[in-house]
Simulated assay, not measured.
Amino acid sequence: MTHWPQRQAALLDALAASGALPSDWRPAFEAVPRHQFIPQEVWRQEASCVPVEAGDEWWSLVYSDTPIVTQLDDGRPGGPGIATSSNSKPSLVARMLGALDVTEGHRVLEIGTGTGWNAALLSARLGSRRVTTVEVDQDVAAEAEKAIRSAGYSPRVVHADGEQGFADDAPYNRVIATCSVRRVPPAWIEQTAPGGFILAPLGLDFWSGALLRLRVADGTAQGRAVGGVQFMPMRSHRPAQDAPVDDSTARPSPGALVPETLASLGFALYASARLPGIAMTQGQHDGVPQVWLWDRQGSAATVTDREVWQYGPRDLWDEVTEVHAVYIRAGAPAAEEFGVTVDSGGQRLWLRSPEHPVV
């Protein structure tokens, strides 16, 4: 423990050298040590959540640029061990705070308090009375508030559903979400001052994870993707449970070389609009690179360069490759070329200009 200042300094130096930590945010990171917000019982996210031993392993994890799982299965014992709350990797925290573009006098609403580290960093930068943070899990909110108070800060910590924001302290100049959403909630737009920004991770089915930066004006939020992020979904935005796949419908075909752009954030955004409801992930099975597709209604596909298997009523691999071909003909646009408009008519994804919706 006596060596944490050196560990902290080394981490912050590395974040600054990489460009993740803006110079105007470094004093806040120095004033708010990460270890003050990490409980003793934590997990490392690997193929599954692996417990971290107390002592040097814990300290090494805390002062590495690594996310830390702080809750499994919404806090219920005996579950499957799925991560449901975490402390984000420091480079991501720094990059998002930099993208928030705050200045003195701004009021900020944070959706997803988690461990409280982000709220404390905002308080160190802006002053506690200008920060409101909302957490849906009562136990997580209570522990976060305790850690924040111990660190010397006193933002308003609210136990509530973050989808509704928190109208009592509105309007806010900035809204930042530390959980992904399928759609930007209307309450966030209503509670953001004209000219303010909403910074939120968009989490759709097709392996996406785009960070949206939306300016609010006249009841509309509009802006572009500003990079890729991976966050746990807001609880009310979690996907529906998948329907079982009937193995008897298996249809084999020759293997396929998976193009690199299939796993790009640009294609993930494009496919999320053109192929709503289809989910994708990729990895390795028995040492062989593989893509998995499913639609939550009982269709699925597995793809390797050796063979393709499709299941259920839809040929998902055929649908994906057809849409991917259109994406390539459009120039294989990067994620930053896509934008989102949210208004009373709903949420729309567009390419290069709001006048060119992706449909």
Rank of each mutant, 00 (worst) to 15 (best):
P233R: 06
L214T: 06
T249I: 12
E57V: 07
G345V: 01
S88C: 03
S128D: 11
T304S: 13
P33A: 10
F37M: 10
V69M: 03
L257S: 09
L257C: 12
S248H: 06
A250V: 13
T281D: 02
S91N: 12
C179F: 05
G255M: 11
W117E: 07
D286G: 14
Q8G: 06
G312K: 05
S128Q: 02
V158L: 01
I189F: 01
V42P: 10
P185N: 11
P252M: 06
I278M: 13
Y153A: 12
A271G: 00
R329Y: 01
L121C: 12
W25R: 00
V229A: 08
E30W: 10
V288F: 11
A330E: 14
P254N: 14
W207Y: 03
G345Y: 03
A334K: 00
G55E: 05
M232T: 13
D73M: 10
A99R: 14
E30P: 06
V291Q: 09
A144D: 04
T249C: 06
G195V: 03
V42A: 12
S85K: 09
R314H: 01
A200T: 15
L199R: 13
G209N: 13
Y311H: 05
R95D: 05
L265E: 09
T302W: 00
G219I: 08
W117M: 04
V320H: 07
M234F: 15
G127W: 01
S264L: 04
P171M: 06
C49H: 01
G346T: 01
Y153K: 09
F37E: 05
R183L: 03
R125I: 00
L92F: 14
F197V: 07
V52H: 04
E190L: 09
W294M: 09
S60N: 13
G195E: 06
A177M: 03
G223M: 11
G114D: 08
P33F: 15
G266L: 00
R76A: 12
G203D: 13
V320Q: 05
P244R: 08
G19H: 07
T70H: 10
A271C: 00
V359D: 13
F166I: 08
D73H: 02
A200W: 02
S264I: 02
P194M: 07
V320C: 03
D24R: 09
R348N: 00
D205K: 15
A279C: 00
R224N: 15
R76T: 15
L126N: 02
V340I: 15
F267I: 03
E319T: 08
